[in-house]
Design a protein around this nucleic acid. Structure first.
Length: 457
DNA sequence: AAAAAAC
């Protein structure tokens, strides 16, 4: 099967060829015909499956068939970086098709960004890619016309609900024509997603490419380390492995700059991305990282989903992600396209119970490697420790130890000089933001007219 | 239980 089988507009087919999409991925093969038919759709698919193109191609086809001078498609995404990336992907299609788009998200300084966004909406950029908060901010100003929106797409819907966007999404949907096509993509299908789908989709088709199993091209392994050993282990990895480019993930914003400084002190070059950094800095770091100028990015889970950067050879989980799903997303940043990648997770003594959940989700064991020579022994592996809440006698599937090549950690002691070359005087964490702790008091009980709760006092 | 997202 090829993209030519979909009978698309010639400029769209040419774009697809130009962007070197060869053969439709499974999501694309299943979703594109359904979306072209005009049906609503629920897509259970992770990033890296070609999901974005799966919804962009038929949507652009529709726009080419029905040219209008108004916005026709609204895409909602959870993070600014993802919105921007989707917008850039549309630009790729727009080169030959002429389809216009605009990313609508907050954080950028300068009122000029605001007016550019406003201008795009008023002049009918055909596709709007927005984070919910900023779109609503524009809507409040009164000039946003959404009555020509024919397609609504929710990308990473589960993440958006996690972030508390349910009400925002409903508020936006209420401004859209009821006669529209709605596409919802989500990595998982919890009840909340079903409820949202029941509310805003009509008789949706379902496409299921739910791979909770990450690509086999990723060489996964883990080390049991004490927290104080982490940076030494990091150094070992950077010096011993052939690191082209790397993302280091941490669950806490407050750790990002610490890790950046520690890595740079070793003579490597890294910069951080998290919501603590202002948007311009975030985007500058991403630009350098995508260009290959910057070899190492240290990030929170803001970058775990969807971000597509070529050539990331290594992902290091400096800690274990909160949600097992996030682990799959994080390591999916490597081994993009035809490449292979290495994912290494640092497990400390306290958060071992999270590992078990990840292994259950993946239905495979995460190989635990012994610490390299010269390291003091790390903590013992005991993932059951904190699981007091779970049913103790629950029978668990025996897991096969995945066979195949062991991690190259030990194998490549003789690696040539790493590409992520140490550089003298690498810029140290330049964005030093003293975090002002907003002491949050218990929220005041709000008078809520719609609730009849009575509290005995 | 932390992250992100509006000014």
């Amino acid at each position: 099967m090829t993209f030519h089988d979909f009978n698309l507009h010639s400029s769209l087919t040419e774009s697809i060829d130009m962007m070197q999409y060869n053969e439709p991925t499974p999501v694309q093969a299943q979703a594109i015909p359904e979306i072209l038919s005009g049906r609503d759709l629920i897509g259970c698919a992770q990033t890296g499956t070609g999901k974005t193109a799966a919804y962009l191609i038929p949507t652009i086809q529709h726009i080419l068939d029905h040219p209008k001078e108004a916005s026709q498609c609204l895409i909602l995404a959870p993070t600014r970086e993802l919105a921007k990336q989707i917008d850039q992907q549309i630009d790729g299609f727009g080169y030959l098709t002429g389809v216009t788009s605009m990313a609508i998200y907050g954080g950028s300084t300068g009122g000029e960004v605001w007016s550019r966004q406003r201008n795009a909406m008023e002049n009918g950029a055909e596709i709007l890619v927005a984070t919910p908060g900023r779109l609503i901010a524009h809507m409040r100003m009164g000039y946003v016309q959404l009555d020509h929106i024919r397609t609504l797409i929710l990308d990473e819907a589960d993440k958006m609900l996690d972030m508390g966007f349910f009400e925002d999404i409903i508020q936006i949907v209420n401004e859209l024509p009821t006669d529209r096509q709605t596409l919802l993509f989500s990595a998982t299908m919890p009840k909340k997603i079903r409820l949202l789908a029941d509310r805003i989709l009509r008789d949706p088709a379902e496409v299921n490419i739910a791979i909770s199993r990450p690509a086999e091209k990723i060489d996964q392994s883990a080390y049991l380390v004490h927290d104080h050993q982490k940076i030494d282990l990091m150094e070992h990895i950077l010096r011993q492995m052939d690191v082209q480019s790397m993302i280091v993930f941490t669950s806490r914003r407050s750790e990002v700059n610490k890790i950046v400084r520690a890595i740079n002190k070793l003579g490597f070059q890294s910069k951080g991305v998290s919501s603590d950094l202002d948007q311009n800095a975030r985007e500058e770091v991403m630009r350098e990282f995508k260009n290959g100028q910057l070899p190492i990015v240290v990030a929170t889970d803001v970058l775990s989903r969807g971000i597509d950067v070529d050539n990331i050879s290594h992902v290091v989980n400096y800690d274990i992600p909160q949600d097992a799903e996030d682990y799959i997303h994080r390591i999916g940043r490597t081994a993009r396209a035809e490449r292979t990648g290495v994912a290494i997770t640092f497990i400390n003594g306290e958060k071992q119970h999270r590992v078990r959940r990840i292994e259950e989700l993946m239905e495979m064991e995460l190989p635990k490697l012994p610490l390299p020579e010269g390291f003091e022994p790390g903590p013992a592996y005991n993932p059951e420790k904190r699981s007091s809440g779970a049913a103790p006698n629950q029978r668990r599937k025996k897991k096969r130890k995945p066979k195949g090549p062991q991690s190259e950690a030990s194998a490549s002691a003789a690696t040539p000089a790493p590409t992520a070359t140490p550089t003298a005087g690498a810029a140290e964490g330049e964005v030093k933001k003293k975090k002002k702790r907003k002491k949050r008091r218990k929220p005041r009980p709000q008078s809520n007219p719609s609730s009849n709760e009575q509290s005995p006092s």
